[in-house]
Simulated scan of single mutants.
Amino acid sequence: MRRNSFPYSYWAKILGVLIIIAGIFSFFQQYHKKGVYDFNELAVGLSWGFVFIFFSKEKTDDEMVRSLKFKALATALIASFSITHLYNYFFLNWHFERGRDVILSISAYQFLAFTLMTATAYFYYLKYQMTLNEGE
Rank of each mutant, 00 (worst) to 15 (best):
M1I: 07
R2A: 06
R2K: 12
R2E: 11
R3Y: 12
N4R: 03
S5P: 02
S5G: 12
F6T: 01
F6P: 00
F6M: 09
Y10V: 14
Y10M: 03
A12W: 15
A12D: 07
K13V: 05
I14V: 13
I14D: 04
G16V: 05
V17A: 11
L18R: 06
L18K: 08
I19F: 08
A22Q: 05
A22S: 13
G23Q: 08
G23P: 05
S26M: 07
F27H: 08
Q29W: 13
Q29N: 09
Q30N: 12
Y31H: 09
K33S: 02
K34V: 01
K34L: 10
K34A: 10
V36E: 15
V36W: 11
Y37H: 14
D38Q: 12
F39C: 02
N40T: 12
N40E: 11
E41K: 14
A43Y: 01
V44Y: 11
G45A: 10
L46W: 06
S47Y: 03
F50I: 02
F50N: 09
V51Y: 06
V51C: 05
I53K: 00
F54Q: 00
F54C: 00
S56N: 09
K57P: 00
K57Q: 15
K57N: 08
K57R: 15
T60W: 00
D61C: 06
D62Q: 10
M64S: 06
M64R: 11
M64W: 03
R66Q: 14
K69P: 12
K71R: 15
A74M: 12
A76N: 04
L77A: 00
L77R: 01
A79M: 09
S80E: 01
F81S: 04
S82I: 15
S82T: 15
I83H: 00
H85V: 07
L86S: 09
Y87V: 05
N88S: 09
Y89N: 07
Y89T: 13
F91Y: 14
W94T: 10
F96I: 08
F96R: 05
F96A: 01
E97I: 12
R98H: 03
G99I: 03
G99K: 05
D101L: 05
V102W: 06
V102Q: 11
L104M: 11
L104N: 10
S107Q: 07
Y109P: 01
Q110C: 01
Q110A: 06
Q110I: 02
F111S: 00
A113H: 02
F114P: 02
L116C: 01
M117K: 01
A119P: 02
A119S: 06
Y122G: 04
F123Y: 15
F123T: 03
F123W: 07
Y124H: 13
K127H: 14
Q129A: 13
Q129P: 07
M130W: 13
T131R: 10
L132K: 14
N133E: 14
G135W: 08
E136H: 11
E136M: 12
